[in-house]
Design a protein around this nucleic acid. Sequence first.
DNA 1: CAAGTTACCTGACGGC
DNA 2: TGCCGTCAGGTAACTT
Length: 283
Amino acid sequence: MPELPEVEVICQGLLPHLMHRTIIDVRCSGKQLRTPVDCEELQRELNEKQIVNLTRRAKYLVLKTDNGATLVIHLGMTGNMGIFDAESATKKHDHVCWLLDNNTELRFNDTRRFGAVRLFTANNAAKEEKKFFSAIGPEPFSRACSVAYLMQRAAHRKQAIKSFIMDSHVVAGIGNIYANETLFHSRIHPERPASSLSSKEWKRLLTIMRKTLKHAIKCGGSTINDFVNASGEGGYFQMNFRIYGKAGEACSCCGLVISKKTIGGRASFFCEKCQPKLEGSSR
DNA sequence: CAAGTTACCTGACGGC
DNA sequence: TGCCGTCAGGTAACTT
């Protein structure tokens, strides 16, 4: 399940294969993704155009072409992107394919079709892109994502801290897995009201969130190193999670059985002892 | 307006 | 064997 680290690794992996390549043609499965895919528009806007940039913002990949168009891709839950030989057989759930000028093809595969491929056309791409991303919170690594910012946003909010840090309007890129991991390592109970965290706790949470994401990117970078004809084969890199999915197992820190509870409609894992519900560390 | 709930989608898995 | 229910999860629209 692609969260910020996975998208970052995919972005870095694809960049050398896409930079300065020219798109020859676009093909679509015809299936609707999260938003409808207009294949004719994609062709009209991208055919014969050169790729000049590929970046990540939140969990989105942002691809730009030399005519000023912007392609925004979200991998949803099961989405993946890879470079393939143009002659190779497509797989089930390949929904959008971009044929490139070196006989390779960029393919978007998404089993559950929670992903999205959106195009901002050259005539208004800058404006539309700005509007699209303006609602999304700052990148966790950015200066804007400070303890002061987070505390200000959390003020008077009774929402569970876990739901709060998963809210993309607050901070970009934190999904269920990294929310669970971050809170465990920060020793903060996921149900603590967002407004109840002290500045000391916010500082610890932010530091650990960044550290956890960075570590995952580093692991992913070494795991996935071949984006040609390989992407999508092995799924996403498996981090050695300490808490996510470990209900019933012993806490790696204190040995207590790990709890599982639905918070904000999402499976949540935590250690009652290491993540006390009352403010203050158990250390 | 905050916060909780549901829809979207397919495949894996467990129970019978 | 196969059928059915449940679960997984990001995002936006919806309800409370």
